[in-house]
Design a protein around this nucleic acid. Sequence first.
DNA 1: ATATGTCACTAAATCGATGTAGTAAATAAA
DNA 2: TTTATTTACTACATCGATTTAGTGACATAT
Lengths: 345, 345
Amino acid sequence: MKKKRVSIKDIAAQLNISITTVSFILNGKSKEVGISTALTEKVLKHVEETGYKPNLLAKSLRTGKTKIICLLIENIADPFFATVAGYVEELFNQRGYKIIFGSTKNQAAKTRELIDLFRDRHVDGFIIAPSEKLEADITNLLNESIPLVLFDRYYKEIETDRVTTDNYEGAYNAVKLLIDQDYRNIALITIDSEQTQMHDRLLGYEKAISEYGLKPYTVKMNYQKVEQTAVEEITQLLTQNPDIDALFFGTNYLTLKGLQAIEELNLSVPGDIGVISFDDHDVFKLLKPNITAVAQPIAKMSEEMVNLLLEQIDVTKAERTKRQVVVPSTMHVRDSSIKKINHNA
Amino acid sequence: MKKKRVSIKDIAAQLNISITTVSFILNGKSKEVGISTALTEKVLKHVEETGYKPNLLAKSLRTGKTKIICLLIENIADPFFATVAGYVEELFNQRGYKIIFGSTKNQAAKTRELIDLFRDRHVDGFIIAPSEKLEADITNLLNESIPLVLFDRYYKEIETDRVTTDNYEGAYNAVKLLIDQDYRNIALITIDSEQTQMHDRLLGYEKAISEYGLKPYTVKMNYQKVEQTAVEEITQLLTQNPDIDALFFGTNYLTLKGLQAIEELNLSVPGDIGVISFDDHDVFKLLKPNITAVAQPIAKMSEEMVNLLLEQIDVTKAERTKRQVVVPSTMHVRDSSIKKINHNA
DNA sequence: ATATGTCACTAAATCGATGTAGTAAATAAA
DNA sequence: TTTATTTACTACATCGATTTAGTGACATAT
């Protein structure tokens, strides 16, 4: 019952020819090395019949190529990252690569494990949304000349290929939009992270706030504890600061938590509280009211990442200059979460 | 700059001992094969210093073990599957396995590709939510004695380990709940699939409908086209059959589409239309009204899957009887999507 | 007749591990 | 003293591919 997997050696033996010949034929080198059409066809036919599939483990050991790309994201369940994953997978599939995902949970240890795991298995390249404290690991990859693209966030002190959104601008515009709608006490709900994307969003928020001489309210919560404590923290913020009239959320999952808090407090959006989210979410247009969001151009970002990585893989030797791509965010304005002016009118 | 990865051979050469010795030491066999403590420590120290990491590709080629499990699900972006993925990953990590995900998009060709890809790389086992037309591939895995657990759906004609929800019962109860709430023209919105999970949900629906002598309305839509056409199809159903007063959705993503259709038609839930979803969704409790759902006990299912697979991996030789686990679903009743009786009262 | 060139293949080294079957030296048993 | 046993290692085949450097047979050139 249990069939042993047939190897190239078996094929060669069955046809009474050398392993080398079979290998050449299977790799389409018949012409190049001068193997007769007759034999080529015979081998191909036999391979077809036996259903022989080369052992890619062995192949990779020999060649050092796996035709696999590793994509490390925060969480496969997060709609932003899931969408990126979808695009990147599709694009790489088109180029003959398989793609493998890993959820880092934004934890350095977990990311490190995944990097090691896949590096040991010789993936041909990495696309990573790095957690904090991963500088050393990233540097290692760079030193080993493993193709690498960072996205969403990066390290200022390490020069890598990377693709990010203009987080500063996006956040600034979001807060400005709230201000334009006459909101004056705007809090930023974000996570306690020094990662560039969150830092830039914070800076964008602060810029807009200070530009209009408003008072900043900032809540930074622990990423790992969002699921447990976010609703409560936001509830506290709102009860302790009844003057707050708008919330700008640093990420879409925080927005969902915030909406729950608002709901539980029996406050209304946008009348009592204006809401804008950084990062869009499928359900934002379904919720009542629907939620305005700063959206990242995910399709475009994905394309850029894929191109950067393929460039690195294809460049044989010559030193290639690292490239940084920054794409602008777009505002998905859905009035019903922020129409204070019309509301009051 | 570009460091060559150090191999066991390098380690052996540097210490002037044999490769075998190094291998034994690294695999903790010092005692067993009688290698002196002095040498053992010396090697371990040197390995530590050089930062040598064994090449798992080579190791796997030799041993046929990878300590990797492959989980194939419909779509990493789907909340049901994403949650399963999260649990399964966690459980396997605890047991020293890494887990690799693949999105099948419920397409046989894509699933086949993924199975082949990972089988070639000798993953130690598969957990699969199989698409249709995959019987031959599953049978192959079975013949090759590759550890395998199916979940969510299965093939009646193939005996495998599997874990599923009681879809029939769940659907029956959902429809019955609508009937109890005085809804009388209840449509089933499902996908055009003969897969067991969808088939059983259909049967459960039909059972309840016929038990009360009601008229069935069933819309089956193409899974691949849900994103494009679902809203329109549901809109049509509702406009062409104004007597319909409740919708039972076969999956949570269909529910989201249905709610969009209902919204666009300016109908209200639960007054005009009662709604129950098969499979829960994080946002169902956020939506207004919040949506009642038949929930699968994902944590428990995940545990069962992991246990079944580990059993297979651990069983050395003796024929093990395949096991089928069916877990009951639970109803997450959220009155506001179905409270017709109270509403009219 | 000898050298040169093609043609159609093949032997064997290699990738980096594991693990079986040994060996040489020291010690114990007869 | 000879044999058996133990101790502390090591040589080498192996997993299943790729790839370099040949080889033998035949044709053509000089």
